[in-house]
């Protein structure tokens, strides 16, 4: 007796494949945002499932802030090549040099400067749709995002004026200059992503696994020491056994002390975790970082 039953990952998978094919069917010039992070790794596998045996009918696009972990970029380039995809990289540095992105006086973070760089790339290649790996469980504001998120000709999102999304009928119609961001992983949680990585036996960058790294304590976080983030005179450099839970720029990604060296270890760690994924990002609120402090103090 055959069981016509899908488990939760199969449900999320078929929903995401459907969305990717809608993009291929409804847009002239789509792109897939691929950073090499765990969420976009899942996106690429879903693209393979949606479009094979054909080539994936859209290029991969990444905005390189210049502050990426080198392991991430190495993985990004290698994975794109394995899949036979065309990888387009646009650098914040170049955008600054061209005057497309203008840093505020003293601004070190490249976080905000990614935006004009991305919009310039969209204009350069006339992309009408970008598929991204964002998830609704990441933060409160994202809980209100659509699968098909409409952007006006300035690339702006208007949360007050979103298109209602009913059943699996996505409205992809655009006027000239307008743009769509599409998030096939909207309904996935951090746990779903890792379970999918495990089921699909997907390779992920080594920094997700436990390794030794020099770090300094700053703003309630352990931050990795690098050329861009050298220790200050009064700071003590510690060598810790760590991994990253979520990857941002190398100057703002908090390291998590962890012995997890396999995907199974990571799944067990997340299941037992008592703070959210975003709790390890220095670009998040100071209050969450303060929480981390208390947890550590209590733990030790």
């Amino acid at each position: 007796m055959t069981s016509y039953h899908l488990d939760h990952l199969q449900h999320l998978e078929t929903e995401a494949i459907h969305i990717m094919r809608e993009v291929a069917g409804e847009f002239e010039r789509p792109a897939l945002l691929f950073s090499g992070g765990k969420d976009s790794i899942c996106l690429l596998r879903l693209a393979e499932k949606a479009f094979r045996p054909s080539d994936i009918p859209m290029p991969f696009l990444n905005v390189d802030t210049g502050h990426h972990f080198p392991e991430l970029n190495e993985f990004r380039d290698r994975r794109a090549k394995q899949l036979g995809g065309k990888l387009i990289v646009r650098k914040v540095e170049d955008a600054i040099a061209k005057g497309i992105a203008v840093p505020a006086p003293g601004e070190i973070s490249r976080n905000k400067l990614q935006i004009p760089t991305l919009l310039a790339a969209i204009e350069e290649f006339r992309f009408d749709c970008c598929i991204g790996g964002a998830r609704r469980d990441e933060e409160k504001a994202r809980a209100k995002e659509r699968f098909f998120s409409f952007r006006d000709s300035f690339g702006q999102w208007d949360p007050k004026n979103q298109r209602p999304e009913i059943w699996n009928l996505y409205n992809g119609r655009l006027n000239a200059g307008e743009n769509m961001r599409v998030f096939p992983l909207s309904n996935w949680t951090e746990m779903d992503v890792w379970e999918y990585i495990q089921r699909e036996k997907l390779e992920v960058p080594s920094i997700y696994f436990s390794h030794r790294r020099q770090a300094v304590r700053r703003g309630g976080q352990w931050l990795p020491v690098s050329d861009i983030l050298p220790p200050r005179a009064n700071e003590e450099v510690r060598e810790l056994v760590v991994r990253v839970r979520t990857i941002g720029d190398i100057i703002s990604t908090g390291l998590v002390e962890s012995p997890a060296s396999t995907v199974s270890d990571i799944i067990a760690e997340i299941a037992a975790a008592r703070v959210t994924e975003r709790g390890s990002r220095a670009d998040d609120k100071a209050s969450e970082a303060a929480m981390e402090d208390r947890k550590k103090a209590g733990y030790f």
Partner: peptide, 13 residues
């Protein structure tokens, strides 16, 4: 501790 879903047992949504 939150309940740990057993990874290999199919659960639905």
């Amino acid at each position: 501790m939150p309940p740990v879903p057993p990874v290999n047992v199919p659960i639905d949504i």
